[in-house]
């Protein structure tokens, strides 16, 4: 038997905006895990043993979601700061060998791509990838 598992990451929109009722339905059908529901979608749930179904705690969900927004604002950095740091790394080629090779072979294939990369990192004209 051949089993192939590929990790796809499709999806549209912010997970913390998904309707809690839809998460409850996914849980009841066994399509979502409790961990994922709480940590990725920020919906607080518990299993009602008597009714044999998942229940959403609306107030706790709202708190989780507010906390997630605050967490993002705290850990996100202005792109300009990230750019300065990452530019240094780019100039020193501090990447896995396969990535270095990818940039070099892509630059050989496409002058336009090489220019795009150099423009994005504001690299000197004589810099070669």
């Amino acid at each position: 038997m051949l089993s192939s598992n590929s990790a796809a990451a499709g999806g549209l929109g912010d997970p913390i905006e998904r309707g809690p009722a839809r998460l409850k339905a996914d849980l009841d059908e066994g399509l979502a895990t409790e961990w994922m529901t709480r940590n990725v979608y920020c919906v607080e749930v518990s299993f009602d043993e008597r009714a044999k179904e998942w229940k959403v705690d609306e107030a706790a969900t709202e708190n989780l979601r507010q906390a997630k927004r605050k967490e993002r604002l705290a850990r996100g950095m202005p792109v300009k700061d990230w750019w300065q740091k990452s530019r240094q790394r780019f100039m020193k080629r501090e990447f896995d060998g396969q990535i270095v090779e990818m940039y070099q072979s892509s630059a050989r294939l496409s002058q336009a791509f090489a220019q795009e990369v150099k423009d994005f990192w504001a690299l000197p004209d004589d810099f070669t990838l």
């Binding site: 912010d14 927004r69 790394r89 940039y103 990369v117």
Partner: peptide, 29 residues
């Protein structure tokens, strides 16, 4: 993580997750 990084972009005003991109390190945004 040696080959791929996931970049999340947040709105500075409300903290919404506006976009996610998965690219090799060093790739232009």
């Amino acid at each position: 993580p040696n080959l791929c990084e996931v970049r999340e972009f947040y709105c500075p005003g409300c903290g919404s997750l506006l976009k996610v991109e998965s690219v090799p390190a060093g790739y232009p945004i």
